[in-house]
């Protein structure tokens, strides 16, 4: 072909571009197929099993409920037997336990932390203050509930909740993960 004829050729008639588009569509479909296979077969159970027993929370101790979170991580109510271990940076954590009242100043930072966590990520709202404002609901500087700006998976009520209640909340989260699809949570 001459150069002018090549230039006048429509882009979707270019055989290499058509082949590339076709491969893109096929790879997209292949990706969907992989998702469907992983979600339907026992592979889902294996992946969910890995996620359930290694929920690593971010190191944040928002307000007073952190005293009971600390007690829950301690010797008698050991949270590590559920795989919950605050280790390392927040980029490699997948659980955020919002312990206590969320102030306006802290809310922005919590959103920043949530955005930096690795997907899939889960949020437990621990304590009455993070569910609805709790004892401080008519204060001028707090957000009445963390669900106003973060998607919450499990609510653990109490002021503060006992360590046993927090363990129950983690078990509920594990049940939720066990029955969810691998690729659905963001």
């Amino acid at each position: 072909m001459s150069a002018s004829q090549k230039a006048r050729q429509q882009p979707d008639e270019d055989p290499i571009a058509m082949l590339a588009d076709g491969i893109n569509v096929w790879i997209g479909k292949l990706g969907d197929i992989v998702h469907t296979i992983v979600d339907r077969t026992p592979i889902r159970h294996v992946i969910n099993w890995g996620r359930i027993y290694s929920l690593w929370p971010v190191n944040i101790t928002t307000a007073c409920c952190s005293a009971e979170f600390g007690a829950a991580s301690g010797a008698r109510h050991d949270l590590e037997r559920f795989g919950v271990l605050p280790l390392g940076s927040l980029r490699q954590s997948d659980l955020m336990v919002v312990e206590g009242t969320v102030t306006n100043k802290m809310a922005k930072r919590l959103k920043m932390i949530y955005d930096q966590m690795a997907v899939p990520r889960y949020v437990i709202a621990m304590g009455d203050c993070s569910i609805s404002g709790g004892l401080f609901h008519d204060s001028y500087s707090i957000v009445n509930g963390v669900h106003e700006f973060l998607p919450v998976d499990v609510y653990v009520p109490g002021c503060p909740p006992r360590p046993e209640a927090l363990e129950q909340g983690i078990i509920m989260l594990q049940e939720k993960i066990r029955s969810s699809k691998v690729y659905e949570h963001t």
């Binding site: 102030t103 306006n104 100043k105 922005k108 609901h137 008519d138 204060s139 001028y140 500087s141």
Partner: peptide, 18 residues
């Protein structure tokens, strides 16, 4: 800072809406 932008909150004529 970043918590409350309104008038000084502890004044008696400042009512916090709930």
């Amino acid at each position: 800072i970043d918590n409350w932008d309104g008038p000084p909150p502890l004044r008696k004529d400042v009512r916090i809406p709930t």
